[in-house]
Design a protein around this nucleic acid. Structure first.
Length: 569
RNA sequence: CGGGGCAUGGCGCAGUCUGGUAGCGCAUCUGCUUUGGGAGCAGAGGGUCGCAGGUUCAAAUCCUGCUGCCCCGACCA
């Protein structure tokens, strides 16, 4: 491709709207342009990268035996009503009406449509297992799109759905997809981890996420330094303390704590460490009342764990101010478990405290020297908190470290959640009708592009790994407009490389060398060839990798072979 | 949804407080010079200042309403 014919507009200045590195670089390199909040156009350069990602995904999906299909983006409401998600899915589901006032959705995912296909097409256990996948545009009306294409509303996803006659087959299909994902992300040269995950709105049982490690990631992951354990913090179990609770040493005492509504304020005011204070959160109960969740002051509530507790409303909702007042007689900021008239769950760590501080359920008052059993009944205890850095690993080996990740893939064993709701059955060996089991497997194609940049950039721009690079080589001739020998040699080299199947961006612009170097580095083309009069007289061409600091002189005659070897390596 | 901020040529910004000829840098176009790290000179094009009302002799600027975008929050009682 000749740069002079390629509409890439690079900028030196970073657009004000971009917050994270990948978004900034994608805008500066002219890969994407924003059309509306969370909605982007992909320009030629950016789309080339998307296609590279898709290509690797297709190859590995096909290798794993999955079959490509293409389902519609716009889907009839009936299917969603049938699965129950017309109501369940909430405001992220973009709903619309056609000219006949019929309800439709713009698909955020395709379980309904694919299950409909399966129940129509699959009749016999002999046709199972089968795995259908597609690479297609999704729309999720995110509350808050951000970070460019990392959390957009419209995005490209590879989604796959497998159908099985029994559990063993579903587990095998899941394992095959897991292996395929490892191959794909390895080929894309992403630094990733697979982690145990919550199943969330999709539903189902076993599930793992593939997380690209990056400080800008939105997900927190707990990784053990003692073994292979890794889990999303949403799910990672916090081990209960192993030491016995200390015996009470202090007397119960009421202390005035005017306006001390937060743990930080309280801790500073009383000179008591945060981990010696309790916080009491009231959440809605399933019966219309409230449930108290009690945590150590330095811990955070884990909503995913909490909403699974008996009696707690799912999804988790904090109690209204009125409900708080009714249950405690106080206002938020001074709540405590002592004398509280509602079910109480204490986190294991909170239950292990002695002589702690908590709210007195009266304005501007807290209790000090409080002890379970002595001053109030022993509470039900549960795992309610997020694990923190340094917690023991739930496997018993090593400690947990908290790292950040970008979720680029997620695989689930769905079981019968959709097949049952939508009556997707086949006949088994004995002619009995059985409900198929399903697995589903997603990959955020466009998000991978951003994630790769987050992991591969420097102060000058992007550094593409070969498999995702929009072009393998950038060919920069110097003084092209003036030097006939340079032009002849560059044209010839460009043609030779192209004929050898190398993807070359030929910078034939009438621009100064500095401009070309700067653009090549911003665009992140991994291999650079520079052709100047000086080198030409010696019969050589300069080569430099985007990550390298120095040039190498390569004899002109062997440049193509040299580049092919680099790309093969 | 709550809070904060922003909206002026393609991009980045000034001008708004204190109303009075719309400006700067980058980018773009033309010409000449220049050509190994974002060139110089000379010239040119491009903006109904987000939209709609209002105040005023006069509005980018003041007032009202709306829209869009960005950031933070939406457990930490």
């Amino acid at each position: 491709m000749r740069f002079s014919q390629y509409p890439i507009n690079t900028t030196k200045e970073t657009p004000a709207e971009a917050e994270v590195t990948s978004h900034q670089l994608m805008l500066r390199a002219g890969m994407i342009r924003r059309v509306a909040a969370g909605i982007y156009s992909w320009l030629p350069l950016g789309l080339r990268v998307v296609r590279k990602v898709e290509h690797i995904i297709r190859e590995e999906m096909n290798r794993a035996g999955a079959l490509e299909i293409l389902m519609p983006a716009v889907q009839p409401a009936e299917l969603w009503q049938e699965s129950g998600r017309w109501i369940e899915y909430g405001p992220e589901l973009l709903r619309l009406k056609d000219r006949h006032e019929r309800d439709f959705v713009v698909g955020p995912t395709h379980e309904e449509v694919v299950t409909d296909i399966a129940r129509r097409e699959l009749r016999s256990y002999r046709q199972l297992p089968v795995n259908f996948y597609q690479i297609q545009t999704k729309f999720r009306d995110e509350v808050r799109p951000r970070f460019g294409v990392m959390r957009g509303r419209e995005f490209i996803m590879k989604d796959a759905y497998s159908f099985h006659a029994d559990e063993a087959s579903m587990a095998a299909g899941y394992a095959a997809m897991r292996a395929a994902y490892v191959r794909m992300f390895t080929r894309m040269q992403l630094n990733f981890r697979s982690v145990q995950a919550d199943t969330g709105a999709i539903g189902g049982s076993a599930s793992e996420e593939f997380q690209v490690l990056a400080d800008s990631g939105e997900d927190a992951i707990a990784v053990s330094d003692g073994d292979g354990f890794a889990a999303n913090v949403e799910l990672a179990p916090a081990a209960a303390p192993t030491q016995a609770r200390a015996v009470p040493a202090q007397a119960l005492e009421k202390v005035a704590t005017p306006h001390m509504k937060t743990i930080a304020d309280l801790s500073a005011f009383l000179g008591v460490p945060r981990e010696q204070c309790l916080k009491t959160l009231l959440v809605d109960a399933t019966d219309g009342g409230v449930v108290a969740l009690v945590l150590r002051g330095d811990h955070e509530l884990n909503p995913v764990k909490a909403q699974k507790l008996k009696g707690v409303a799912n999804p988790l909702r904090m109690a209204s101010a009125a409900a708080v007042k009714a249950a405690s007689g106080s206002e938020p900021g001074f709540l405590g478990p002592v004398g509280l008239d509602c079910p109480i769950y204490a986190d294991h760590a909170a239950r292990n405290l002695a002589d702690f501080v908590c709210g007195a359920n009266a304005p501007d008052l807290h209790l000090q020297g409080v002890n379970w059993a002595r001053d109030l009944p022993e509470p039900a205890s549960a795992d309610l908190r997020n694990v923190v850095d340094g917690d023991p690993s739930p496997t018993g080996k090593g400690q947990l470290r908290i790292v950040r990740g970008i979720e680029v893939g997620h695989i689930f064993q769905l079981g019968r959640k959709y097949s049952q709701a939508m009556n997707a059955t086949v006949l088994d060996e004995s002619g009995q009708s059985i409900t198929m089991l399903m697995g589903c497997y997603g990959i955020g194609v466009t998000r991978i592009v951003a994630a790769s940049i987050e992991q591969n950039h420097d102060e000058r721009g992007i550094i593409w790994p070969d498999p995702l690079a929009p072009f393998h080589v950038v060919l920069i001739p110097l003084n092209l407009q003036k030097s006939a020998p340079v032009r002849a040699a560059a044209d010839a080299l460009y043609a030779e490389l192209a004929a050898a199947g190398v993807e070359v961006l030929y910078d034939d612009r009438d621009a100064r060398p500095g401009v070309k170097f700067a653009d090549a580095e911003l665009l992140g083309i991994p291999h650079r060839l520079v052709l100047g009069e000086r080198g030409l007289q010696a019969g050589s061409c300069e080569y430099r990798h985007r990550r390298a600091a120095d040039n190498e002189d390569i004899p002109l005659a062997s440049v193509t072979r040299f580049i092919k070897a680099k790309l093969a390596g």
